[in-house]
Computed example of a mutant assay.
Amino acid sequence: MKNCLGAMDDTMILAAAPAHPGNAYRNRHGRIAQNILCACDFDMNFTYVYTGCEGTTHDARIFLDALSRPDNQFTWPASGYYYLVDAAFPCIEMFMPPYPRERYHRSGCYNEDGFQGYKDYFNYRHSSLRNIIERTFSLLKRRFRILYAMPPYRPVRQGMIITACCTLYNMIKIVTPNDEIIQGISNHRSEMQNSSTENESGETSHVVDMSSESAQAMGAMRDAIALPMWAHRFGQ
C-alpha cells in the first residue's frame, strides 16, 4: 500500500462527565466516556489527536467535525497519500476504508486459496495493516492509567490530559525505544508495515470533499491497489 501514511480511528477514554449532559457521554457499553479521534504512523507514533466529543457521538461525525474546522489543525496528506480508516468513515480522497459488504477482521490463520476474490483479500490486508492504530491505543492506555480513572475536571481539561498523554507517549517512544512496555507490543508489528512511506509535505488548510467525485477517486485508487495485490498474492 504505497503512500499510506498510517491509520486513523476513534477510541473511548473513560471520562468524568458533568451532571447535566451526563447521558450524552454514556456510550453503547453504558460507560461514561469521551470518543477521541487519533491518527498514527507505522512507527506507532500519534500524528493527530482530537478530543472533546461525547461517548454517544458517531465516529463519522467526529471525523467530519475534526477535519472541517481549521482551528483543529489537522495536517492534510499531500496529493496521492492517504490514511487507512474503518468502514464507519466515508470513502473519500486521502482516507481509504475497506470494501463494504465484504468480510473483515479475518483471523491470522488463513488459507491463501480461501479468499473469495480481490475485495475479500484486500480487506484482510487492510485489517492487518490498520491494526497499527489499535495497538497504539492499547500501548497508550497501558502506559497512562489515568485514562482509566479520569479526575473530575471540566471536559475541556480532560481532553487536555488525553492530549498530554499522547504527547508524552510519543516522547517516551523517541527517548526510550527499548522500554519494556513498548517492546512488548512492538514485537507484534505486522511485516506489512515495512511498505509504508512518510509524507513530508502535508497541508494544514483543506476542505473536506464529500462529493461523489471524491468517493470515485478513492474507489479507483483502492482498486488500483487491490487488483495487483490479488494478482500477486502468491508472490509471483
Rank of each mutant, 00 (worst) to 15 (best):
I92L: 05
Y83W: 12
D71A: 13
Q158H: 03
T163H: 00
S107T: 13
Y153T: 02
N111R: 15
S68K: 06
L168V: 13
R135W: 10
Y82M: 15
R69E: 14
Y81K: 03
S68L: 08
Y82E: 14
Y169V: 04
H126L: 13
T75S: 15
R142H: 08
Y99M: 09
P155Q: 06
N72T: 10
P70K: 09
A149E: 05
D179G: 04
C109M: 12
L64K: 15
D71W: 09
A87R: 09
I172K: 07
F122R: 02
V156I: 02
T136Q: 09
G80D: 09
L67W: 06
R145M: 12
R106Y: 15
H126C: 12
N111M: 12
L84W: 09
P151Y: 04
R101H: 13
D86P: 10
Q183T: 14
F122G: 01
F137C: 06
S79Y: 05
F115V: 02
F144T: 00
P97S: 03
Q116E: 14
C166Q: 09
L139Q: 08
L84H: 10
T176N: 13
Y99D: 06
I146Y: 00
C91F: 03
G159R: 11
S128I: 12
Y148M: 12
F74W: 08
R142E: 04
V175R: 05
M150Y: 07
E102S: 07
I132G: 02
G80W: 11
N111K: 13
A88K: 09
A164E: 02
R154N: 04
W76F: 14
Q116D: 14
S138D: 13
L64W: 11
G117C: 04
M150N: 06
A66H: 11
N111I: 00
P97W: 04
R157F: 15
Y82T: 12
Y83G: 07
L147H: 01
A66M: 04
A88C: 11
K119F: 06
V85Y: 01
I161C: 01
R106M: 15
Q73M: 13
H105F: 10
Y104N: 01
V175A: 05
I92A: 04
Q116T: 10
C165L: 01
T136V: 05
T167W: 10
D71G: 09
I133D: 04
A88I: 07
L129Y: 00
P98K: 02
R154I: 04
D86W: 10
N170E: 03
P70H: 07
L168F: 09
Y99E: 11
Q73L: 13
T136G: 04
P70D: 05
C109V: 15
S107N: 13
Q116H: 08
M96L: 15
L129V: 12
L67P: 05
H126G: 14
A149K: 08
Q158N: 02
G80K: 08
Q183I: 10
I92H: 00
W76D: 00
I162M: 12
S127W: 01
L139S: 10
D86F: 08
N123V: 06
I174L: 10
T163I: 07
R106I: 14
L129G: 02
P97F: 05
C165D: 07
I132M: 07
R69I: 14
T75D: 14
R143Y: 00
I62S: 08
F89S: 02
Y110P: 03
A164H: 00
Y153L: 15
E93G: 06
N131Y: 08
C91K: 03
R142D: 08
